[in-house]
């Protein structure tokens, strides 16, 4: 095989790989939608009250992802969408945790009062 032919083939391969790489970065619409849905879920779980900082961070990442989408910077959009998703998850988890913590506090107090009402020991 002549040297030129080999070189040409290698070049062709490189070009194909480059093109494929470019073509394999479609707009991360699904990732964005996932992140949006997760943030909405966190809101439903009253994250605005129980985990406001995490919710704010998730929303900021979502906004950045949208802006990147607008600029057709799909790589950044993908990255920000995945950050928004994980932060939405965190807001959701912390809201659930905080709600449970409140429940524990409430029930502890309830039991204390019940003990006192019923005149049982340990309820002063």
């Amino acid at each position: 095989m002549p040297l030129m032919t080999v070189l040409r083939r290698k070049l062709l391969c490189a070009a194909t790989v480059l093109l494929t790489a470019c073509a394999s970065l479609p707009p991360p619409t699904a990732a964005l939608a996932d992140a949006e849905a997760r943030i909405a879920m966190a809101r439903e779980q009253r994250a605005a009250r129980y985990a406001p900082a995490d919710l704010d961070a998730a929303e900021a990442a979502l906004l950045a992802a949208r802006e990147a989408m607008d600029r057709k910077d799909f790589a950044l959009a993908q990255q920000q969408a995945s950050a928004a998703l994980v932060q939405g998850d965190l807001a959701l988890a912390r809201a659930g945790e905080a709600a449970l913590r409140a429940q524990v506090r409430g029930k502890t107090e309830e039991n204390r009062q019940l003990r006192r009402q019923l005149g049982l020991r340990g309820g002063q």
Binding site: S82, A83, V86, Q87, D89, L90, A93, R94, G96, E97, L100, R101, Q103, V104, K107, T108, E110, N111
Partner: peptide, 25 residues
């Protein structure tokens, strides 16, 4: 992402403990 996921998992574990506490109460 790894840090956040670890954070989420830790929170979920604490939530499980809290759920157990609620049941105990």
């Amino acid at each position: 992402i790894a840090e956040q996921r670890a954070e989420v998992a830790e929170s979920a574990i604490r939530a499980a403990a809290l759920r157990a506490q609620v049941l105990a109460l």
